[in-house]
Design a protein around this nucleic acid. Structure first.
Lengths: 208, 208
DNA sequence: GAAATTTTGTTACAAACTTTTAATATTTAA
DNA sequence: TTAAATATTAAAAGTTTGTAACAAAATTTC
């Protein structure tokens, strides 16, 4: 029964989710794979096959109910839960991310922020006070966050990740230039902003 | 002769580039596909095949010269140039990106920042003064930037992109939740931070 | 300087992904 | 009530991507 879903499909799921959210806001309550595919720049077959990886939520002759499709995808992504997350690094990137992304709509809520810079400790970001990173182990033990966003200078990454891992963190969102490797007992999502610049540079070279 | 390089390969190039940069800093001046593959979590064949898309820079029995390989990949990515870029939106994300990413190492240099919030106009970010967005067309005409980083609220995206396109901008790095579509005459790289959160959520559901 | 080893570049193979095609069910309109 | 149109599902074919194996070339060792 266990059919594994390919990474390509997973990577498309958040985008489906965003589009469906838009459709709801526009008041659309039903959509066909064809219409959705046109909106998203895919083929209708691909859309259907993507959804069918998870059992198929459509109705023949009718299409997909936008609301319930969105809900289903949300459940697949696991964002109907509210997992506890902490932010390591209250610099520009960390603060920007904390203030701009609606965690609650994406499966998480932010419960703590940590930094090792005395200037930053005690400041508030949103409604959270920045704590000393030295206290992170104690915080993790008490509050059991499952995920950590790492937004610190490259040099410190290995040690920080090591300590967080030991303290029980199971998932990492990594903004640093260092690559945090996937491992048996943890999951990692790397966000390399510099790579995006380089990719854009390549595309420009091709077309412009 | 024109063999098109697949997107998968392109997406790996920035990562190669980063690793090679690290190797140089470690003082390594030569490396085999096998060693590099182990460091990057790929197979040696894939590494060789990737490089061969562009002609092959190695020497049999010896391996690859780290320095010249990095240079070659840099050229492929087009980051040996210095294209002019402007930032639209001096909010948290925009400022963080402008201050944290070394544009010069990635093919660009930042020449202007624009916002429509009177509070932000006149402020400085790094060494650049934030200008009124109403003056962006004039600026583009005079300075001919080729790329724009869009880091504004979702609602304004379409209009902003429309104006920038008309003024002559050919490439967009999009941080907003709205999807900026690739088109014939422009290239786009979307960075959806929220999607990364959702992907991480999914991976956690699988493993944890 | 010759033999052995290393390592690339290339070709062939396998797996993964996407698209097409055919089949089946539902809705809508006559 | 019936028939046509719509749209999903399932299966097959085609394409792309990744892996493995091998031969040619260069370096290192003896």
């Amino acid at each position: 029964m266990e059919k594994k879903v390919s990474e390509s499909v997973i990577n498309r799921l958040p985008r489906y989710y965003r589009y469906l959210d838009e459709l709801i806001k526009e008041g659309v309550d039903r959509i066909s794979s064809k219409t959705l595919s046109e909106k998203m720049g895919l083929t209708a077959s691909q859309v259907r096959q993507d959804f069918n990886c998870f059992g198929g939520f459509g109705q023949q002759g009718y299409g997909y109910k936008v609301e319930s499709l969105k809900e289903s995808i949300g459940k697949i992504l696991g964002i109907d839960r509210q997992r506890s997350a902490i932010l390591i690094g209250a610099g520009n990137i960390g603060r920007a991310f904390a203030l701009n992304i609606t965690f609650e709509k994406r499966g998480f809520h932010l419960t703590g922020i940590f930094d090792n810079d005395p200037e930053k400790i005690g400041q508030t970001v949103g409604d959270i006070v920045v704590s000393d990173f030295e206290e992170v182990e104690k915080f993790i033990e008490e509050n059991k966050p499952e995920m950590a966003i790492v937004a610190i200078p490259k040099a410190g990454v290995n040690q920080v990740v090591f300590r967080l891992k030991n303290a029980g963190i199971k998932a990492f969102l990594n903004f640093t230039h260092a690559e945090v490797e996937d491992a048996e007992d943890i999951v990692v999502e790397n966000i390399h902003l510099g790579d995006s610049l380089m990719r854009l540079s390549y595309k420009m070279g091709e077309k412009i």
